[in-house]
Design a protein around this nucleic acid. Structure first.
Lengths: 335, 335
DNA sequence: CTGAAAGCGCTTACAG
DNA sequence: CTGAAAGCGCTTACAG
C-alpha cells in the first residue's frame, strides 16, 4: 500500500500542490478543466487525503465527536446509531468514541479536540455531577443527549431529553391506578442530576402523593445489564415476596427481572407486573411484551443534530424537553 | 480551551522541544531531573499531545483499527468489546470504526491508514467475497475475527473463527437426534465464504446425510434484527405450518422467531423447537432459554489480539479454528 | 544527556 | 485562476 500524497497528484496532473488542494476541497476558485484533470489524477493514483496533515494546518475541521458512555446501554447505542445516520445526511463527519462507564468523557473530548480540532460534541449518557466546571470550560458547541443540562452555564451547551422526573412519576401513577401499592424499584437511585436517578425520585414522589410509604427494602441496585438485573431481582425475591409490581429503570433491567421471576416460578403479569423504561426494540419482542415509557429516540436524535448544527452556526445553546410515550403492554395487569 | 503545544511546555520547563518530545514519549535518553521537570510543566499547563502532528511525522503509530461491520449484530459488538478490553491491557491504542453493512471496510481501512498510519487491523463481520484482492493488498497485519480467511494469500493475514460449516451440521444433527425432520431455516444462506452462510450449508449436509430432502419452502431469509426475523418467521407461518423445528442462524433471529411463534399461539418448545447460534447473553435470558451453539467469544477475542500482536512483531499470519460449544437449553425438546 | 534543524502532508494568505 | 512559500505541532537523525 504505497502512500500517495498531494505531491504525486500534482506531478501527475502537471499543476502545483496548491491547486490540487483547492480542487480536492471543492474551492470555487479552480478552473473547470483543471478540476477535471485533478479528479482523474486522484482517481488514477488512488489518492486519499491525509487528514492528520490537514487538521494540523486547519484551525477547525468539520469533525463532530459522539461520546457514548456505557456501551452496554442499548437505548444509548441505538440513539447513537440514529444520530450518526441523521448527521451523515447533513454532511457531518463523526468521530465515535465509546468509553467505559468509569472513564472521563471530558478528558476524552479534550484529547479529541487536540487531535482533530473538533467542531462540536454530542454527549450520550454523560454523568454531569461533579463535572459541571469541565463541561462549561469546553468552548465548542456541545449537545447533551438524553440528559437535561439546563443547570449548566455556557452559551455553547445544549441538551435534549425527556423530563425523567415526571416520566418516573407517570409510570408509578399508572401502576397505582392499576391497584398496585407494593412497588419494587430496580435500578439506580443516583442523584437528581442523573437521568436514571430522576426516574426513581419521580416514582417516590408519586408514591408519597398516593399515601404509599416508600420502603427501602423494596429497592435493589443494579446496572444496565442482564446478569446484574437478574441478580438484583433474585436478591429481592430472596428477601421479600410481598411486592406485586416492579418498576425497572430500563428495559434491559426489566427483562433480566422477568427472567428471574420466571425462574422462581412467578408469572408476569399474573403474579407480578413489570414495567421497564426507554421503549427499546427489545421491549416489544420479549415475552410477554414489556410495558414501558418510551423515549422518543428518533426525535431525540434529530433534535440533537439540529441543536449541534445551530451551535456550530454560532447560535446560543438551548435545552429541549421531549415528550415520552407510555406503552401499555402485556407485562402489567390490573389487580 | 487554549491550545497548549510542546513549545509552551519547553518554554515553561526551560528546555528544548526535542527534550520535551523525548520525555513525553518515555525515551530512555532523558535525565531523571529533566524528566521530572517536564512532567511538572505538562501537568501545570495541561498539555495533551497533538497526535495529528505526531502521526504526520512518524511513519508508524501504535494505532490498531477495529473495523466492525454491522452494528446491529450483538455477537460482534460483544466480541469487539472484549477485544478492546484485552487490547487495552496490552497497551494497544484502538481506533474503533463501526460501519454500515453496506459500507466498504477496505476503503475505511485505507482511509484510516492514511489518517493515522495504522499498525494493524482487526476485522469483525467482514464479507470477504469479492474483496480478496483488497485484503491481500493491505500490507499491515490483519486479523479476521469470527470468519475464516485461510483462502486468502498474504503473509500478514490471520484469522480466528469456529468451523461454521461443521457447527451448522452439528446443530442439525442434534435436532435430528431429537426426532426432528421438518426443520425450517431462518437467516441467510449466502455463500460458503461467508460465516453465516456456511452454517446453513452444514445444516443441509446433515439433512442429506440423514435422508432428509431439504425443502426450499422451509427457508426464509432475514437479517440480524428482531423485526426482520419476526417478519420472516411470520411469512413462514403464513405459508406452511408443518415444520416442528427452527434453526436460526443467530440468537437474535431465534428470539424474533420465538416472539412470532408466541403471537401465533404456538409454544416453544411444545409445538416448535427453536435453536439459535452464537450463544450470546440474550440467549440465556429469554424465555424459554435458547438452545444455541456458543462461539467462544472470550477465547476468540484473546486469540485475535494475540495474532495481531504476533503479526505486529513480524510473524507470519496464522489461521486458528476454535471449538464452539453446544448449549442444550429449554427451547428444544424431543419429539 | 540535550539542542538546532529538517521535514511529515497539508492549507492558506500573498502575489501575480 | 494558479503557484511559491510559510507554517501547523510534532519526531528524529545528527552533532555535540
Amino acid at each position: 500500500m504505497k502512500i500517495v500524497t498531494i505531491n504525486d497528484v500534482a506531478r501527475e496532473a502537471g499543476v502545483s500542490i496548491s491547486t490540487v488542494s483547492r480542487a480536492i476541497n471543492n474551492r470555487p476558485d479552480v478552473g473547470e478543466a483543471t478540476r477535471k484533470k485533478m479528479l482523474k489524477a486522484v482517481e488514477k493514483l488512488g489518492y486519499i487525503k491525509n487528514t492528520s496533515a490537514a487538521s494540523l494546518k486547519q484551525h477547525q475541521t468539520d469533525f463532530v465527536a459522539v461520546v457514548l458512555r456505557g456501551r452496554r446501554n442499548i437505548f444509548l447505542t441505538d440513539l447513537a446509531e440514529r444520530i450518526l445516520d441523521i448527521g451523515k445526511e447533513k454532511q457531518l463527519r463523526f468521530l465515535t468514541e465509546i468509553i467505559d462507564e468509569k472513564a472521563d468523557e471530558f478528558e476524552t473530548v479534550r484529547r479529541l479536540y487536540r487531535e482533530r480540532k473538533l467542531a462540536g460534541v454530542i454527549f450520550l449518557g454523560s454523568k454531569l455531577e461533579g463535572h459541571e466546571k469541565e463541561a462549561e470550560e469546553l468552548d465548542i458547541p456541545c449537545v447533551f443527549s438524553s440528559i437535561e443540562a439546563k443547570f449548566l452555564n455556557g452559551k455553547h451547551i445544549s441538551s435534549v431529553s425527556i423530563d425523567n422526573f415526571s416520566a418516573g412519576r407517570e409510570v408509578t401513577n399508572r401502576l397505582v391506578e392499576l391497584g398496585h401499592r407494593k412497588i419494587a424499584l430496580l435500578g439506580y437511585f443516583g442523584s437528581i442530576s442523573d437521568s436514571t436517578g430522576l426516574r426513581f425520585h419521580g416514582a417516590k414522589e408519586s408514591m408519597e402523593k398516593h399515601g404509599i410509604v416508600f420502603d427501602k427494602e423494596l429497592y435493589e441496585e443494579c446496572d444496565f445489564t442482564l446478569p446484574s438485573s437478574y441478580a438484583a431481582m433474585s436478591r429481592l425475591l430472596m428477601r421479600r415476596k410481598d411486592f406485586i409490581a416492579v418498576f425497572a429503570s430500563s428495559d434491559i433491567i426489566a427483562i433480566g427481572a422477568m427472567k428471574a421471576l420466571n425462574d422462581w416460578g412467578f408469572t408476569v403479569p399474573g403474579d407480578v407486573s413489570v414495567v421497564g423504561f426507554d421503549g427499546t426494540e427489545q421491549a416489544d419482542y420479549c415475552i410477554p411484551s414489556l410495558a414501558t415509557m418510551r423515549q422518543p429516540s428518533e426525535q431525540m436524535a434529530h433534535t440533537s443534530v439540529e441543536l449541534l448544527l445551530e451551535g456550530m452556526q454560532g447560535h446560543e445553546g438551548k435545552h429541549v424537553l421531549l415528550q415520552p410515550k407510555w406503552i401499555e403492554s402485556k407485562s402489567i395487569c390490573k389487580l
